[in-house]
Amino acid sequence: MPSVMLLTSNSDGFNATRTRPLTHCARLILNMLFACAWLGPSITQATPGGDHDAPPFVGQRFVLAYSNGFRVVDEFVTSDELRFTVLSPPTPGRSGTVHYRWSAIAPHLYVIRWTEADGGTVMHIDDFNKGISRSYYVPAGAPLVESWAPLRRLR
């Protein structure tokens, strides 16, 4: 099993403290941290999603054809409700609604996350300016699935 070195910070910088097994959730968090580190200081300006401030993608529909073959239409109904329709096998036509949370981490760049009915967790880094969605999905009791898709807005 992969492992991760845990770090502590002191006045001299970072010191390695111990190595721990890298779980699926930890891998997801590390992927997010690496993505955020790539963005630079803008991560410190993250804003939480909530009813009082709707993200600009609310009311829009997108078709996503992920690199792993999964295809879905996502509609952001409100600032915390996402309606989806699966287009690809094995469950084409399956649809539903999930409650999501979002954070703006840079202009037009959002982290969008939710928990599936089966306990799996989904996290997207969606760049609405560049039109790219990076997806990190951890099915309940299964390994992390990483994929990407163009964000194609439907009219």
Rank of each mutant, 00 (worst) to 15 (best):
M1G: 14
M1N: 10
P2H: 15
P2F: 13
L6E: 11
L7G: 03
T8A: 15
S9K: 10
N10T: 10
N10Y: 10
F14C: 07
F14Q: 12
N15D: 13
N15I: 12
A16K: 07
T17W: 08
T17P: 02
T19D: 11
L22C: 02
L22H: 02
H24D: 14
A26F: 07
L28T: 01
N31L: 13
N31E: 14
A35Y: 15
G40S: 03
P41E: 06
I43N: 02
T47R: 13
P48N: 12
D51T: 10
D51H: 11
D51G: 12
D51I: 08
H52M: 13
P55T: 08
P55W: 05
P56L: 00
P56F: 04
F57R: 05
V58Q: 03
G59F: 07
Q60F: 06
R61C: 11
V63I: 15
V63H: 12
S67D: 14
N68I: 04
G69F: 05
G69W: 10
F70S: 08
D74G: 01
D80M: 07
R83V: 10
T85R: 15
T85E: 14
V86F: 08
L87V: 07
S88A: 04
S88F: 02
S88R: 03
P89T: 08
P89A: 12
T91M: 13
R94Y: 14
R94W: 08
S95M: 11
H99T: 05
S103D: 07
A104D: 01
I105T: 00
P107W: 04
L109V: 10
L109R: 04
L109I: 09
Y110T: 04
Y110I: 02
R113M: 11
W114E: 00
E116P: 01
D118K: 04
G119D: 05
I125Q: 05
D127W: 06
N129D: 15
N129H: 15
N129T: 08
K130I: 11
R134Y: 15
S135G: 10
Y136Q: 12
A142T: 09
V145Y: 09
A149C: 08
P150V: 12
L151Q: 02
R152C: 09
R155P: 14
